[in-house]
């Protein structure tokens, strides 16, 4: 029963959502759209509970780090302190309060943006390593990357004024054609996986048999 009940729920919920996407079905005041909306609301509630579980997981692991004085335990301490402060201020004073805004714009925004900006460094090192004219295919990739990068920066136009036009052509045609091929394949693959889950053929998300 431990496996059958989730499989039945998956099937019933899946069929309701699919039918609701295509058809307007209703009996009296009860419509399929209402049921579907209600199910989707439940997912939000379940997600909220899951967040609680996740917080417990986080606290368990990091309090153990502090208790056992594992290497870098002070990072775990910083995490727990900031988590408690942000939660407390957010719950008691709201996210529009000056104190919350101070922590948010003073700490979270710059730290988050800094991590994102690391991407520029990683792109440079990956490009340096990957774009090498090893064979014909790699050379085509290299030349295309070169032109597209030039076309995306104002300096490209100073070198050759038509670079943005060539870039646009490359992006709109060869690039788009390849992308659509992958999109179609992935969409069909996702649909097939969805069917496998719906009819209970794919149940690895429930753990091993």
């Amino acid at each position: 029963m431990k496996r059958e009940i989730p499989l039945v729920i998956t099937f019933v919920v899946g069929v309701i959502i699919i039918l609701d996407y295509f058809f307007k079905i209703g009996i009296g005041t009860l419509s399929l759209a209402t049921v579907s909306m209600e199910i989707q609301n439940w997912t939000l509630i379940i997600a909220a509970f899951a967040l609680g579980l996740a917080a417990v997981n986080l606290l368990r692991i990091h309090s153990a780090n502090i208790r056992l004085k594992r290497p870098g335990w002070y990072n775990s301490l910083a995490l727990i302190i900031t988590m408690v402060i942000m939660s407390f201020v957010g719950i008691t004073q709201g996210t529009n309060s000056p104190l919350y805004r101070y922590w948010y714009t003073g700490f979270l925004v710059p730290v988050d943006a800094t991590i994102f900006s690391l991407l520029a460094f990683y792109i440079t090192s990956a490009a340096y390593r990957a774009f090498r004219a090893r064979n014909v295919d790699a050379t085509i990739l290299l030349v295309t990357a070169f032109v597209v990068m030039l076309g995306r920066a104002p300096v490209g136009e100073l070198i050759w004024k038509d670079v943005p036009r060539v870039t646009k052509w490359l992006m709109d045609y060869p690039n788009m054609a390849g992308q659509r091929g992958i999109i179609i394949g992935a969409a069909v693959g996702a649909l097939s996986l969805g069917l496998r889950i719906l009819i209970g053929l794919e149940r690895s998300y429930l753990g091993q048999d």
């Binding site: 774009f131 070169f146 995306r152 920066a153 104002p154 490209g156």
Partner: peptide, 24 residues
């Protein structure tokens, strides 16, 4: 920020060029 973007692109392109000249 646009000048910085241009300059960052130049750095990436320069390193790609260096790598390819050295590779060949």
């Amino acid at each position: 920020g646009m000048d910085a973007i241009s300059f960052s692109h130049i750095v990436v392109l320069a390193f790609i060029l260096i790598a390819n000249v050295a590779y060949l």
